[in-house]
């Protein structure tokens, strides 16, 4: 049996809307992943540091208060600075199409818009991590 996927689920920014983050975290757990949940109101610095310490393969960030451009970009920068640029960053929340394109250009691996169903998220992460592990095994 392959080892479980380790993923950090973080609620970035000051708003407290954690329904989405928690439903996704519970869904990923039920899909057999080890989910590290950071709780609310996380700064990009806290998210990046937790991702490094926990040596996760994926960071999932939920943002609903419109600060996603600042927050996601900063997390990507900080991970790179820490030498952990290999960690995949995905996200979800109230993010417009324009911003999704912009963030994916900056290096966010995938953004899930409002109304995305859990199995879609699970499938995407499983496939992406499999690919990443296969890549790492080659090296």
């Amino acid at each position: 049996m392959s080892r479980p996927i380790r993923i950090l689920v973080a609620k970035a920014g000051l708003d407290g809307h954690d329904r989405g983050a928690k439903v996704v975290a519970a869904g990923l757990r039920d899909a057999g992943m080890e989910v590290i949940y950071t709780g609310l109101h996380q700064t990009p610095e806290q998210i990046a540091e937790a991702a490094v310490q926990e040596d996760v393969e994926v960071v999932g960030i939920s943002s609903l208060a419109g600060a996603h451009m600042t927050l996601f970009t900063r997390v990507l920068e900080l991970l790179k600075e820490a030498g952990a640029g290999h960690i995949m960053v995905v996200g979800g929340g109230i993010i417009s199409e324009d911003d999704i394109v912009g963030l994916e250009k900056r290096g966010v691996a995938k953004l899930f818009g409002p109304g995305t169903e859990l199995p879609v998220i699970v499938d995407w992460i499983v496939k992406a991590v499999d690919a990443q592990r296969a890549e790492a095994a080659k090296e």
């Binding site: 920014g13 000051l14 708003d15 700064t43 208060a65 419109g66 600060a67 600042t70 927050l71």
Partner: peptide
Amino acid sequence: MPTIMGYDSDHKRSEGEVGK
């Protein structure tokens, strides 16, 4: 959000969220 959480607009935690 910064106002709701009791942070001034120039607080570090307000970054990116002022007036949003």
